[in-house]
Design a protein around this nucleic acid. Sequence first.
RNA 1: GCUCUUGUAGUUCAAUGGAUAGAACUGCGGACUUCUAAGCCGUUAAUCUAGGUUCGAUUCCUAGCGAGAGCACCA
Length: 565
Amino acid sequence: MIPVATHIKEACLSFSQEVTRDMFVVDIAKDITKGDLYTNFALVVAGKMGKNPVAVAVDLGVYLDAHLDKNLVEKVEVVGGYVNFWVKVGTDVSIPEHIQHSSFTGKKVAYEYTDPNPMKEFHIGHLMANTIGESMSRLGELAGAEVKRYSYQGDVGRHIATTLWGVRFLDALWPEEEVSVTEKVKFLGSAYVAGNTKLAELKEAGEESEEYLKAVKEIEVMNQKVYDRTDEEVNVMYDQGKEWSLLKFEELYDILGTKFDYYFFESVTGPIGIDLVKTHMNHFANGENGAIIFEGDHTRVFINGKGLPTYEGKELGLAKFKYDTWPYDKSFVITANEQKQALDVTLAAIKLVLPEIGDKNEYIFNGMMKFANMKMSSRTGKIIAGDELVYSMMEASLEKMKDREMTDDEKKKIAQDVAVAAIKFTILKQNFRKDIIFDQEKSLALEGDSGPYIQYTAVRIQSVLKKVKDIASTVGSEPLSKEAELLLRTIYRFEHTCFNAIEESAPQHVAQYLIDLASKFNGFYANNKIMGETVDSRLVELCEKTLKVLEKGLWILGIRTVEKM
RNA sequence: GCUCUUGUAGUUCAAUGGAUAGAACUGCGGACUUCUAAGCCGUUAAUCUAGGUUCGAUUCCUAGCGAGAGCACCA
């Protein structure tokens, strides 16, 4: 429908020169019963020239009716100040493979997302970032960009030191090789919690107490050892722990459907960051205790008093390392908005130190995942792990499938994809820049506006298409039913919807569209008998096209379709 | 305290400088029993408050109130 919209836009511009291209829109009509496209051109012209909008709209309507290509636009209708258009549609509608967008088509675009830290739990915050980042990447691919995916992971720093230090407070012993990866990672998570708990206890007893100061010192020493690799025992624990964590992440990416092209580590970006800061001291200043700081909107430390790089310093190093690894036209980093203030300052520093790179970088901040009645903290262990959430959704899905005739393996595979769909869709159907309230009972529905609802619709269509194969087909001549017509017109909106999603970096447009499309199909399905003695080939085509759009739309969201459920 | 983000039905979410603010869940009612009922149909219900800009504001601006996040050597 984009070519049609462009055609209309040109025609509007030739009607009046008072208005420029970016002052009005030709977009999808919100109410499908009023048309496929609409323009507010008359309202804008009227406002500009002090004329009556309705009169202008009537004139515009007459003009467009005479000038628009009848092979594209079937009907022009004036309602109030709006002009609505009915596009010529047929069941032979083509679903475009790619959507042209000047910022993406043919460009090299990098997406960094997920960023879990080794030796810490992969929690639902990471799940959220992964979901958003994967979908953004796919929008880039849809727009014809060459896309690379990255995950950046904190394999050095205080959380690692606290974990390794915390091991001594656990009753459990360092895991043996034959233990499952999940168990090993669980062990590391509890060591982190134990370390933090112990430290908090000691602090409670007195911030100046000998015990507390000793503990702080021990963690510092551990941190230093991790950096300089001088302690063989620490090296072994560190290397094993890191490996286990990364294996566990890989298991999850498999379930979630993400495949990263590059992994970056803070142990690598840190030294680069230090080097960049030291060679660009004109942009930095000396702070208290020997720290090196950057004065942006507010002050941030890039190198701390002990000469170690902070988050900001490492991020600066990452900017260079990432670009050197794969020179891109545009780089997006998807991260939580609790980091906004720190990263805004960091980006300002990157633009000064690495101007040719900084201008290509953009941070996208997502809201927090919150619970109705629970505060999350990985320090205290009060979190929901990503895999646990998937498993609990799987159980709910399996319950629904208990009477289906399938093997247990089949059911399990499907339940997993359905669980991921439920979680991802909940995240992607809304504006991710805002916080998301995660109520496991309510928002992770398998019914209603949900991922599974859309998967289910696709399953129904596949089932129909399978049966229809054995039935003789005819070409109906009577007009399509009301429901079929609505479904067809909704299919036509897919391309334009995707364009809007790409333009605004907003996958929720696609998600909301899919709900609408699935709902239109289910309305059609409930009120029309598709097959009898014979089958109308137009309806078969309609089913095929609907399925294709559902599959493509779910793909954009990073959700798999299933054959049965 | 300062900075940033945010405020739409009972709940969880959409949308928009302009056409009757759109879903889902919950509640209540219903149909079919035909191709997967994780479905379909009906029904009640909302733009935090006060100003401003505008022909027109729920959307933009200001203030207030509520919620969340951040406030240099964690990330």
